[in-house]
Amino acid sequence: ELYGKFGVLGLEFSDKVKRLAGKGISMKGFMAPPLKAEAQFFVLTEVPMSLCPFCSSDADWPDNIVVVYLGEKQTFVQPRQTIEVRGTLEYGSWTDPDTGFVSLLRIRQAEYSAA
């Protein structure tokens, strides 16, 4: 569970997320279609997403996404293939300086493989 509750300030992170922040974790999910083929990051979702999530409004995003920043570039996989991501968990609002993409949860220095 990524979020504990919906409070006055919006979604609040769960105790588990706070406890694991800065630590190495692994998480399974689906890769949303990337913004561009050579992107250094992608979005991990709980269920497969068929549309380019960047092409729609943030209202269409599920609230349980995690942005994955790769340690080094990897070839992207099909959106319906389950993957396992390993890296360091980070939380809190952050804006990517290259793309302007805002994320609340990130996995840094990540790598992934088919689950």
Score class of each variant (00 low, 15 high):
K5R: 12
F6A: 01
E12P: 04
F13W: 08
K16T: 13
V17T: 09
R19N: 10
L20C: 05
G24P: 02
G24I: 10
M27P: 01
M27C: 10
G29D: 10
G29I: 10
F30Q: 05
M31A: 08
M31S: 07
A32H: 04
P34R: 08
Q40D: 14
F41E: 05
F41K: 04
F42I: 08
F42K: 05
L44I: 06
T45L: 05
T45F: 02
E46Y: 05
V47G: 00
V47M: 06
P48H: 09
P48F: 05
S50W: 03
S50C: 00
L51H: 12
C52P: 02
C52E: 08
P53S: 01
P53N: 03
F54D: 03
F54V: 05
C55P: 05
S56N: 11
S57W: 10
D58K: 15
W61Q: 08
W61E: 10
D63H: 13
L70G: 04
G71F: 07
K73N: 11
F76N: 05
V77K: 15
R80S: 12
I83D: 03
E84D: 01
V85E: 04
R86P: 01
G87D: 10
G87L: 07
T88Q: 14
L89M: 14
E90N: 09
Y91M: 09
S93N: 07
W94E: 15
T95K: 15
T95P: 00
G100Q: 04
S103T: 04
S103E: 06
L104V: 00
E111F: 04
Y112H: 07
S113P: 00
S113M: 01
S113T: 07
